[in-house]
Computed example of a mutant assay.
Amino acid sequence: MTRELVLGIDFGSASTIAGVLVGSRIELVQDAGDSVIPSVIYVPDRGDSVVGRRAIAHQIAEPSNTIRSVKRLLGLDSSSELVRRFAASTALPLDLTTPRPMFKLRSGAQAPEQVAAAIIGYVRTLAEQRFGVRIRRAVMTMSAGAPPGYRDAIIRASKIAHLELVDLIAEPVAASLALDLHSYPGNRRIIVCDFGGSTFDVSAVVQQGLRFTPVGVGGDHLLGGDDLDDALANTIAGVVYKKTRYDMTREVTRWTELVLRCENVKRQLSVVENTPLAMREAFTADGKRQDLRTVVDRPFAERAWATLMHRVREVIQDLLVRTGWAPEDVDLVGLVGGGSMIPVFQATVASVLPADRIRRADQPELAVAQGATLLTARHSRTSSELPNLVAT
């Protein structure tokens, strides 16, 4: 009998992570040896699209043909304020005259669902190549506070990618499994803070034995790792402008490269106090192209992110008010998502919630996908004792 594998997928704005359950072991899908698969697609004027790691290089060379952060558009109408803000922050031409936003590429128009489908389909293909079986079904996570149209949009995208979605799980619930709380049955009030590439989601979850029930959700859908990159790039561009009167934001290719380099700086500052930033021919001064060479330290970056961290604090405080929980009522605070590795984010959470009750997932960037993969056991022949999850 041919074995059946069900794919667990965390479809994110910056990256997509997926895995399968082999026995009781989680095996993650890999793209060029890395389990973090960029949610990036390059659509050339002619020929096949390029997805994942191979698409990254095209972001600088052809930013108007390279799409990232498509998750931010799924399920939204063209009239949405979130869509207008997305359009203002990207080099991609968007058609907002139709009911739903469309990417206006030189090869033709594409809907966000089509772009998402290309990424999901690529991940499915990688999984089939690695595990040697055809994969038809998947469990996928979604933001607890996703827009009303998101569920239908991601289901459509999955169908285009030849995947049946057998379950859509709230990301904080999946994260609770990755924190291994199901191994320690008990009665707890839990706050899960998921700081991902495009959104900051915070959820209040009540654990009763092996039963996890979300009782409140909050979030900011324009607050994620991408926004930290933009804020840092804007701050550096501001310094350059003050010294040279050259506006780096007006040249699409240079600006895209600066944002990508700031993403790398952000990651480095999660583990070191300062890191160099170098960019060839970044700006013009005295009629000549000049290289940008500087060292960015944590205090500089944290000043650039101060407004964003204030919004993190507000989201958590608002959730506490709506659930009626005081900070001391919270038994455990779980941190997941790649952004949770940033020290100033951890300090911001600790300024609102008890610091001694904060637990960061061992691999926070992978946590939600790991939880989704564990939940695939409910839809396969694998027998496993799993918690009883109640959806919001």
Rank of each mutant, 00 (worst) to 15 (best):
L5Q: 02
V6N: 01
L7Y: 00
I26Y: 04
E27R: 10
V29F: 00
V29C: 00
Q30C: 13
V36K: 09
P38V: 05
S39T: 14
I41P: 01
D45E: 15
G47Q: 07
D48H: 10
S49W: 07
S49A: 15
V51E: 00
A61S: 15
E62D: 13
V70K: 00
S78Q: 09
S79V: 05
A88C: 05
T90L: 04
P93C: 09
T97W: 02
T98N: 08
T98A: 15
K104N: 09
S107D: 03
A111N: 02
V115H: 01
V115W: 04
A116M: 07
I119C: 02
Y122N: 02
A146N: 03
P147S: 07
P147W: 06
G149K: 07
R151P: 00
I154V: 15
K159Q: 14
E164V: 08
V166L: 12
L168S: 02
P172E: 07
A174F: 08
A175V: 09
S176C: 15
A178G: 03
L181R: 14
G186R: 11
R189E: 12
R189Q: 12
G196S: 11
G197W: 04
S198N: 13
Q208I: 10
G209P: 08
L210P: 00
F212P: 00
P214N: 12
G219L: 10
D220T: 11
H221K: 13
L222K: 05
L223A: 05
L223V: 10
D226M: 08
A233I: 08
N234K: 12
I236M: 06
A237K: 03
G238H: 06
Y241I: 05
K243E: 15
D247E: 12
R254P: 01
W255M: 03
L258K: 02
V259Q: 05
L260T: 04
R261N: 14
V265G: 10
Q268R: 15
V271K: 12
V272A: 13
E281C: 08
D286L: 14
G287V: 07
R289L: 13
R289C: 00
Q290P: 02
L292M: 08
L292F: 11
L292H: 09
P299S: 07
P299E: 10
A306Y: 14
T307Y: 12
L308D: 01
R311V: 12
V315F: 06
D318P: 00
T323C: 10
V333H: 05
L335C: 04
V336S: 04
G337F: 09
S340N: 08
F345R: 02
Q346C: 03
Q346N: 04
A355K: 15
D362R: 12
Q363V: 12
L366K: 10
V368C: 02
Q370E: 15
Q370D: 13
T373Q: 13
T373L: 11
H379V: 09
S380I: 09
R381T: 13
T382Q: 13
